[in-house]
């Protein structure tokens, strides 16, 4: 996780990227800053989906969650209602019917219902839950990540960069809290890279 920040004389930039995987332009931006000697803190949403992303070792990487899906109640509830609870219910029911010739038709009916339920749950997840969650996620993250962001000594940073669209609400809140720190959506290398 975090290591102490470098000497105070070095410029320091806090980059926030809240897409599940940081885009190439974000990775290249933080790499260029690190190569130019800038102290870079990169805040990502979760360690699970980003552990295979190659980043310059000089970049200090911080995460809001280990696994977003299990740490956000709304996602836990949705997963439970659509997938876990029905799976358990059908599993229990079928444990009573499997292997009993007298309940063969009931078991076949349960298997068919399970398949239909599974297909329906996936459909609801993809077509209904995900579009709504995707729109609300930046706002949810902006609330959940504030504590993590507070640990980054933002008052001592030169700038806060919202590197992608989902990072804007968190960066916007931080911009309000730290009016003396420049907060921007521009991946501008000019002040640091010659």
């Amino acid at each position: 996780m975090s290591t102490p920040a470098g000497p105070a004389t070095k410029p320091r930039v806090v980059v926030i990227a809240m897409s599940y995987k940081p885009a190439w332009r974000v990775r290249s931006y933080v790499r260029d800053l690190a190569e130019a000697g800038v102290d870079v803190d990169l805040l990502l949403p979760e360690s699970k989906s980003t552990q295979d992303v190659e980043l310059d070792p000089r970049i200090r990487v911080h995460y809001v969650f280990d696994v977003e899906a299990s740490e956000l109640p709304i996602r836990r509830i949705e997963h439970g209602l659509l997938f876990s609870v029905p799976a358990k219910a059908f599993g229990k029911a079928r444990s009573l019917t499997v292997g009993r010739p007298a309940l063969k038709k009931v078991d076949a009916g349960l298997a068919l219902s399970r398949r239909l339920q599974s297909r329906m749950s996936k459909g609801i997840h993809r077509k209904m839950f995900w579009p709504v969650f995707k729109a609300a996620r930046p706002v949810i993250l902006s609330r959940r990540a504030q504590g993590r962001a507070a640990e980054l000594d933002l008052a001592g940073a030169d700038r806060i960069v919202a590197a992608d669209q989902p990072a804007i609400p968190l960066a916007w809140r931080l911009a309000r809290r730290y009016p003396g720190v420049r907060a921007t959506t521009a991946l501008d290398r000019k002040p640091y890279v010659s």
């Binding site: 729109a135 930046p138 902006s142 919202a162 609400p169 809140r173 911009a175 009016p179 420049r182 521009a186």
Partner: peptide
């Protein structure tokens, strides 16, 4: 506009909808 300090609440909290 790239400066977050200049962005309204609507744009800051709902960037995709605002765009």
């Amino acid at each position: 506009e790239h400066e977050l300090q200049n962005m309204s609440w609507f744009r800051g909290m709902m960037p995709t909808t605002a765009r």
